[in-house]
Design a protein around this nucleic acid. Structure first.
Lengths: 211, 211
DNA sequence: TAGATTGTTAATCGATTAACAATC
DNA sequence: TAGATTGTTAATCGATTAACAATC
């Protein structure tokens, strides 16, 4: 599945789109690599996955490359999505501009808190969780961003599955149990924090247990 | 540096702390593995990095294991940290409970918006960015969470370095340029979204370009 | 004791890096 | 043409998985 390559794609897209914004018509792998502090060979190998073909001595056609990366990730046609759990993180994600550019369009939020239901957050309506199945079907939404408290994660995920969600972007620390056909991706902030903490610790005290 | 192992540590910690909360005194690698949908051998190898020693046929001492994982990650003594950029994401992180359990204590926010400076967010004061160097020194804070808009990321990171930050948890999509002694970790949401999008795409249309 | 689990050593797998001919 | 960059094939590196003796 080439997960490491897939993870690098959005950063390539950012660099290439900036080049486009600057009016450049081509960009080379070494150029992209320099901007991202990678090796050129990594970029070439990764870009090959998108099916793009470059020109020796010149690089890649910027327009083509944007289309190739977007196509590879499925970011051409943006998908509508729900945010489920409108706490501070959920609300922040509802307001995040930039998802549009990443194939994601958040159309509504869901919660059970009467203080939130019926109001809007960043211009998007918040509905009661119980209405999700109905609205998912009506609006043809198959993607959900899960930002409920830990204790609610599994039961709410089951509601989402029931409602026809095919993909769940899981921001809780809970490993979800869902049917095989439902795709889940856990966004694990504590994993990132662990890497930062451990690196810091090793820098300050290089003689601690391990490296 | 064993990054994959380090990233799994927080999930082990969660499982083991739950076992502790349930009053269990020991836990085995296969048991942890089952809860996280991993292989037992992965858990054993990872836990060995923390220096813990288990008992055949029994497993690991729960209390010892919690201490070993926390010690490995440097999560025993919690570090104070600043949130820099109190937009919706920054504010959400300022309110996130659970960082305390991850060695992180957010003590204040910084912004340049007069509408935010002088107010509190989730009970924590927001100061003007210009006061960060002074307050970082006075409060001995060396960790910063960077949640400013993309265009501000690099210049604000430089202010943070100037203020004596040793670690920057970077939530922007910008690859920061900082001195070697400053540790940076980029939390890249778009990478996670890319993996989810690509997986979904491959499930729906298995005959697309690659797998 | 019997047997599940640990810790360690070896084998496999996949990702990264290197080398280099082809090409514009 | 000369030379930088592509695309591909091979080598290296590191992480995961397998195998198994030691042990409680």
């Amino acid at each position: 599945m080439k997960v490491p390559s897939i993870k690098r794609m959005p950063s390539y897209l950012g660099v290439v789109e900036q080049a486009a914004a600057e009016g450049r018509s081509t960009i080379s792998a070494p150029d992209i690599a320099r901007q991202l502090d990678l090796e050129g060979i990594v970029v070439r190998k990764d870009l090959a996955l998108t099916g793009i073909v470059g020109k020796p001595r010149v690089g890649y056609e910027v327009k083509q490359l944007v289309a190739a990366i977007r196509g590879f990730l499925g970011w051409n046609n943006t998908s509508d999505a729900f945010v489920v759990g409108v706490g501070s993180l959920g609300a922040a994600l509802m307001g995040y501009r930039g998802f549009d550019n990443h194939g994601l369009n958040i159309v509504a939020g869901f919660d059970v808190d009467p203080a939130k239901v019926g109001h809007t957050v960043h211009g998007k309506e918040v509905f009661h969780l119980g209405r999700m199945p109905e609205l998912a079907r009506r609006m043809h939404v198959h993607l959900g961003v899960l930002t409920v408290p830990e204790a609610e994660a599994q039961p709410v995920a089951e509601v989402m599955v029931e409602a026809g969600m095919l993909g769940i972007w899981n921001f809780t620390p809970v490993k979800l149990t869902v049917p095989d056909e439902v795709v889940t991706h856990q966004e694990d902030l504590s994993a990132g924090l662990a890497v930062l903490s451990k690196t810091l610790q090793d820098v300050m005290d290089p003689h601690g247990a391990s490296s």
